[in-house]
């Protein structure tokens, strides 16, 4: 081996005498920049990995699926509301809704009479409708007559309501109040608004007297 070294002695000396190549002065700065860039890239990768980790995706996926289910349920309900067959009819403007019976001030006698009249008219209208249906089924009526029939129906309804509005208003006396309520108009409790009244002493005395009279009347009725 030593012989080999001697053999190439000149060559070895030449190679050892080669100028030493040095790194540029900005070597360290470049290295730091590259290291920092790598660190930043690593951190970015880590954050991306963390964000898309299965442990993080499961709750978000569950939340998203829940949101979709809720949305579908709500949208399905909204479709039902839009369904014309399931919609409640609109409130007609030509009809008056009465929320408080006190506003009416109708004498019960008149009311019962009127209601009887209205009932009669309704029955007559129903009969009339039935007749028209029969005619329609038989083929005896044209489209024009049907349209005319509808107009007549609308007319009768509006006249009925006007008649109800034109009922004379009088103060109801205590006796009238105790009379049996007309059965023509079906009044349900659920449709009424009860007003809370705080009576004075005199009023309370009057009420007590009325109650006594009511009891006496009830007893008499039972005896009869």
């Amino acid at each position: 081996m030593i012989d080999d070294e001697k053999k190439y002695d000149d060559l070895i000396k030449t190679l050892k005498g080669l100028q030493q190549v040095k790194a540029p002065p900005n070597f360290e700065a470049d290295l730091k920049r590259r290291l920092n860039a790598e660190k930043y890239a690593k951190e970015e990768k880590r954050t991306i990995k963390r964000f898309f980790a299965p442990s993080r995706l499961v709750p978000s996926f569950a939340l998203a699926s829940a949101a979709i289910v809720i949305f579908l349920m709500v949208s399905a309900n909204s479709e039902e509301a839009d369904n014309p067959f399931l919609m409640e009819p609109r409130v007609r403007e030509d009809m008056i809704l009465i929320s408080d019976t006190d506003d009416l001030n109708i004498p019960i006698d008149n009311l019962s009479k009127k209601s009887e009249v209205i009932e009669e008219k309704v029955i007559a209208d129903k009969k009339d409708k039935g007749m028209r249906r029969e005619n329609f089924v038989d083929g005896g009526s044209s489209d024009e007559s049907l349209i005319a029939g509808r107009n007549e129906l609308a007319f009768t309804e509006t006249t009925m309501i006007r008649e109800m509005e034109s009922v004379p208003t009088e103060d109801i006396s205590a006796e009238e109040f105790t009379k049996p309520v007309a059965t023509g108009l079906a009044i349900e409790k659920s449709g009424l608004n009860f007003r809370q009244v705080n009576p004075t002493q005199k009023e309370q005395e009057v009420i007590l007297e009325l109650k006594k009279k009511m009891r006496i009347l009830k007893k008499n009725e039972k005896l009869e």
Binding site: L18, Q20, V21, K22, A23, F27, E28, L31
Partner: peptide
């Protein structure tokens, strides 16, 4: 690390360049 870089940057540059 900086010291090791300082020590080896020139020998490595020479080796890789050759």
């Amino acid at each position: 690390f900086e010291i090791l870089v300082q020590r080896y940057k020139n020998p490595l540059t020479n080796y890789v360049f050759r």
